[in-house]
Design a protein around this nucleic acid. Structure first.
Length: 282
DNA sequence: CACCATGTTCCTTG
DNA sequence: CCAAGGAACATGGT
């Protein structure tokens, strides 16, 4: 589920559902997702706390909670396969439930097949993040400064969350295609013109994905239901297949939407990159 | 069986 | 010290 657009849509979806709800009890089924917070501390802080707001930073979800007069943040990350949603209190929990927060008539479920995600009181990871790509801080100057000294291929550099926060493997390929820039280009070799184009392409790709996700009939509620944000999910009620939503990602061998040239897949830093060798020559 | 998968962190190497 | 590359984490799909 998780790159910036999916997290943004999830945050907007969850915020009104959890607001003012009080955590009655906590069940931790997989210790690693709350790390490095100690088990006992996690229980003690969360029990009795009230949800005040939900925000996003990069790919992180920030749950603002209040206990008495004290406010604090519970930080969430979906890893590769994490999902968060509410279920009726009496519903069975899915197989890979990592943490469950009982809210009375409902329960907040953090499910994560691979357990790469997090739900923790340690908020330090957020401080290392670069600017929000859709915010004012993401200026062309700052972006250029971040790219200037790196010899890494620009595709790989876009995954660096200190350069700009929230881009993942899919939108890195998508943004470079829109900007017509080769994913193999060393970051420091990008021209100012290309940097400007890439910055706008990133914003456009993310915004469009958020818009797409916002208009889908979402089904976040576990059991059998895959929601439309799941890249490889198959909910027949939802139009969004990756073929329709992505211009290059997962389209190896299929014709480029601009020029018809077959889309190529290469491996960079151990991960697949999809691109058009004709449209993205420089 | 082999290879692939939306992410981050840690360790090693140069 | 820093940048870059690769393995590890854990499970499932094709």
């Amino acid at each position: 589920m998780p790159e910036l657009p999916e997290v943004e849509v999830l945050v907007r979806h969850l915020a009104p559902l959890v607001r003012d709800k009080i955590i009655r009890s906590v069940m931790i089924q997989r210790e690693r997702v709350i790390a490095p917070t100690p088990h006992d501390e996690f229980l003690a802080r969360l029990r009795g706390a009230r949800f005040m707001a939900v925000n996003r930073r990069g790919k992180y979800l920030q749950f603002r909670l209040r206990s008495g007069r004290r406010e604090f943040t519970l930080l969430g990350h979906l890893g590769m396969t994490g999902r968060m949603y509410l279920l009726p209190a009496d519903a069975a929990l899915p197989k890979h439930t990592a943490v469950m927060l009982s809210l009375g008539r409902e329960q907040f479920v953090f499910e994560d097949t691979r357990y790469f995600g997090r739900l923790t009181l340690d908020t330090s990871a957020v401080e290392l993040l670069g600017p929000e790509p859709l915010g004012r801080e993401f200026t062309a100057e700052r972006f250029a400064a971040g790219l200037r000294h790196s010899a890494q291929p620009v595709k790989v550099k876009l995954l660096d969350q200190t350069l700009v926060a929230g881009i993942g493997n899919i939108y890195a390929s998508e943004a470079l295609f829109r900007a017509r820039i080769s994913p193999r280009k060393p970051s420091r070799r990008l021209t100012l013109n290309q940097i400007g184009r890439l910055r706008l392409a990133i914003r456009a790709a993310l915004k469009e994905a958020i818009h797409c996700g916002s208009t889908l009939a979402l089904n976040f509620s576990g059991s059998g239901g895959r929601d439309g944000l799941f890249y490889f999910g198959s909910n027949p009620n939802v139009i969004g297949k990756y073929e329709e939503r992505f211009r290059v990602y997962y389209r190896e061998g299929r014709p480029c939407l601009n020029c018809g040239t077959p889309i190529k897949r290469i491996v960079q830093a151990g991960r697949g990159t999809f691109w058009c060798p004709h449209c993205q020559r420089n």
